[in-house]
Design a binder for these strands. Structure first.
Length: 105
DNA sequence: ATCGCGGCTGAGT
DNA sequence: CACTCAGCCGCGA
């Protein structure tokens, strides 16, 4: 089954400031296993402004990548951006990761 | 149709 | 805890 980008974007937009989510969660919310597919959509995301890709991280708490050209190529800046969102970083991993996780109910 | 790749994940070593 | 391997889905060659 193909993933509906709109659905993916909708979920991302629901993420409140200071919260984050993972590919796994998104995939689960979409009822799919195409974790990677999600990443590819994000990098291709035509809705960069409404899709906070930087709020999507890997399940282990690291950023992962999100090098979408519309999202910016500066990985380091993203980390800083998240910090401004209220997320605390431990080197290249998120601090209190599980606590910041936003689950789609 | 097959192969390989990509912002990955989970289990195993 | 760090690294490796295999599985997952969609798309282009």
């Amino acid at each position: 089954m193909k993933i509906d980008p709109e659905t993916l974007y909708s979920l991302l937009k629901q993420i409140p400031r200071g919260k984050i989510t993972t590919y796994k969660i998104l995939a689960d919310a979409l009822q799919t296993k195409a974790y990677r597919r999600i990443g590819q959509i994000l990098k291709n995301n035509p809705n960069a402004p409404i899709v906070p890709c930087h709020r999507v991280v890997k399940s282990d708490g690291s950023i992962g990548g999100y090098m979408g050209k519309t999202c910016g190529t500066d990985w380091e800046k993203k980390r800083t951006l998240l910090i401004q969102e209220g997320i605390q970083f431990d080197q290249d991993k998120i601090k209190n990761f599980g606590d910041k996780l936003f689950i789609f109910l």
